[in-house]
């Protein structure tokens, strides 16, 4: 095991910056959606909130860069990857359940597919700095 702090340096700096942006965007989006029109698409908005929590957890865990937080980050990013694939698939299969978009709908199409690429980069980065 090398220095766990390596997680937040070098290219990790950029990775965490992107995670921070998504944490902020997802939190703000979920907050506004739930506060203003929760009844319109409760499933989608709850998933937005879940995504927001996961992005925040991943951001802080990566930035903290301790042995424990790296495990938290790995778990959060793994859930993120599973989530974006599952929600992406479901949003195509049963679009009626997703009248309004979540961050992960259509594999993150509304965000330039970054939500799909980000967890892969995140896991690769955690592996590389192990």
């Amino acid at each position: 095991m090398t220095d766990p702090a390596a997680t937040k340096h070098g290219p990790g700096r950029i990775l965490i910056a992107v995670y921070g942006v998504f944490a902020l965007a997802a939190t703000a989006r979920a907050g506004v959606q739930i506060a203003t029109k929760f009844g319109d698409a409760p499933i989608a908005y709850l998933l937005s909130a879940v995504a927001a929590v996961i992005y925040c957890a991943a951001t802080f865990a990566l930035a903290k860069a301790t042995v424990v937080s790296r495990k938290v980050a790995t778990a959060a990013i793994a859930i993120e990857l599973a989530g974006v694939i599952a929600i992406g698939a479901f949003s195509y299969a049963v679009p009626d359940d997703f009248p309004d978009a979540t961050v992960w709908s259509h594999f993150g199409q509304g965000y330039g597919f970054v939500p799909l690429v980000l967890p892969v980069l995140g896991l690769l980065w955690l592996r590389r700095t192990r």
């Binding site: 340096h9 070098g10 290219p11 990790g12 700096r13 950029i14 965490i16 910056a17 992107v18 942006v21």
Partner: peptide
């Protein structure tokens, strides 16, 4: 982060 990665983060 005083390296080019810091500047990259700011660019993001």
């Amino acid at each position: 982060e005083s390296s080019r990665w810091g500047a990259g983060a700011l660019a993001i």
